[in-house]
Simulated scan of single mutants.
Amino acid sequence: MMVRFEENEYFLIAMFQKESRQATIEEMHNAIPYIGRDEEMLALMNSTLEKLWCLTEEAFLELDLELYKEEPMEDE
């Protein structure tokens, strides 16, 4: 099964990325209580988690998330 992520889902994965698919899933799952009542963010988190569960570890490790990682802010 081919898993296709939306751009916002890539950003979310990059934000929570750990050394493995399972560790990333756990990190995202642990953040859910802090989202509060933000329905849009909860929907994004849930859709991303569902797709990550369908992804193999090998496919997860092949994701290129560099483009989606936040650039450090420069001091002005």
Rank of each mutant, 00 (worst) to 15 (best):
L63G: 00
T56L: 05
F11W: 03
L44E: 07
T48S: 08
R37E: 15
S47R: 13
T56M: 08
P33W: 10
V3P: 11
L49T: 02
G36W: 13
E71Q: 14
M2N: 14
E39W: 00
K69A: 00
Q17K: 09
A14I: 08
M2H: 08
L61K: 08
C54I: 12
I25E: 10
F16R: 04
Y68P: 00
N46G: 10
C54M: 11
S20N: 00
S20H: 00
I25P: 03
L65F: 01
R21A: 03
E74D: 14
S47I: 05
W53G: 03
N46D: 15
L49W: 07
I25H: 07
L49P: 01
W53I: 10
M1R: 09
L52P: 01
L49G: 06
D38P: 03
E7L: 13
M1E: 11
D75L: 12
D38V: 07
Y34P: 05
E76D: 06
Q22M: 14
N8W: 04
L65T: 06
I25D: 02
E66C: 10
M1W: 08
I13N: 11
L61Y: 01
I25F: 04
T48M: 02
I13C: 05
L44W: 04
L61A: 05
E26F: 07
L65E: 00
N30H: 14
L55Q: 03
P72H: 02
D64N: 13
L12V: 09
L44T: 09
D64Y: 03
K18N: 06
T24N: 01
F5E: 09
E70W: 06
W53Q: 10
N30E: 15
E50T: 12
A43S: 11
A31W: 12
F60I: 04
N46W: 07
E19W: 03
R21S: 02
Y34N: 14
M41S: 09
M2R: 12
N46Q: 12
E66W: 01
N30R: 15
L52S: 00
E27C: 11
Y68T: 06
L44Q: 10
Y68H: 09
Q17N: 07
G36Q: 06
T24G: 03
Y34G: 14
L61N: 04
K69P: 00
L61E: 13
E39S: 14
E58R: 10
Y34H: 15
N30T: 13
E7I: 09
E70N: 09
L55S: 00
E7Q: 15
T48R: 04
E66G: 04
T56S: 15
E27T: 10
I32N: 10
E66M: 03
L55C: 13
S20I: 06
Y68K: 06
E19A: 11
E62P: 07
Y34F: 15
K69T: 01
L42T: 02
L52E: 02
R4I: 12
T48Q: 13
S47A: 10
E26G: 03
N30G: 14
S20K: 06
L67D: 04
L65R: 04
Y34E: 11
